[in-house]
Design a protein around this nucleic acid. Sequence first.
DNA 1: CCAAAAAGAGCTTTAAAATGCACTTTCAGG
DNA 2: CCTGAAAGTGCATTTTAAAGCTCTTTTTGG
Lengths: 77, 77
Amino acid sequence: MHFQEIIQTVKRRREMLQVTQEELARLSGVGLRTLKQFESGKGNPTLQTIEKIVDVLGLELVLSVKKISYATSENSI
Amino acid sequence: MHFQEIIQTVKRRREMLQVTQEELARLSGVGLRTLKQFESGKGNPTLQTIEKIVDVLGLELVLSVKKISYATSENSI
DNA sequence: CCAAAAAGAGCTTTAAAATGCACTTTCAGG
DNA sequence: CCTGAAAGTGCATTTTAAAGCTCTTTTTGG
C-alpha cells in the first residue's frame, strides 16, 4: 500500500466516521498541524504517530507480503 | 499490529531471507544506523523510511480494520 | 445568502529522526 | 579454538517531524 493510499484510506475513514481533523487530532493525541500535514500529503509521520491516528479510527497497520502486480492490468483492491 | 510486532516481523523476514542489516540498509537506501535503531526497538522511523525497508523485503504496509481482541484469549496471529 | 465550522497553510521553536563513524560484543564457521 | 562477520552501541551533526498559533479559504447547513 503506497504512501498516498494510506493517506487516502485514513482520510476516507475519518470522513466516513464523520470525525473532523480537530477531533481526530484530539482523540489520538496527535497535533492538529501534524494530522493536517499528513492528510494533505505534506507530512511524513513517524510510525508511532501513524499508529495513534489509525488506532482511533479502528484501523491498524499490518505488514503483509506484497501483492504481485501484473504489468498490464493493475486491479485495484 | 503493534509497533513491536512490526519490528519482529521485519527482523524475522530479513533473517529468513538471510540478508544482513548492512545489505538491507544498502538495498533500501536507509542508513545502517537507522535500521539498527529500528530493529532494536530504539528507533521510531518515519513512514517513508519504513516503506523503503519493507519494500526490499517484499513486504508492504497495509491499513486494515482492527481485529477484535477478546478479553481472555489473546490468540496470536 | 450568511455565519459558523472545517479545512488549508504560513511560521517558528523544540524535539527527535537520520545517519556516518568508530568501537565493542557476539556469533558462526572453519 | 580463533578469526572475521555481524550485530550492538555511543556520539555528534544535520535534517526533519511535531505541534501550537494565527490567519485565509472553502464548505456546510439553516
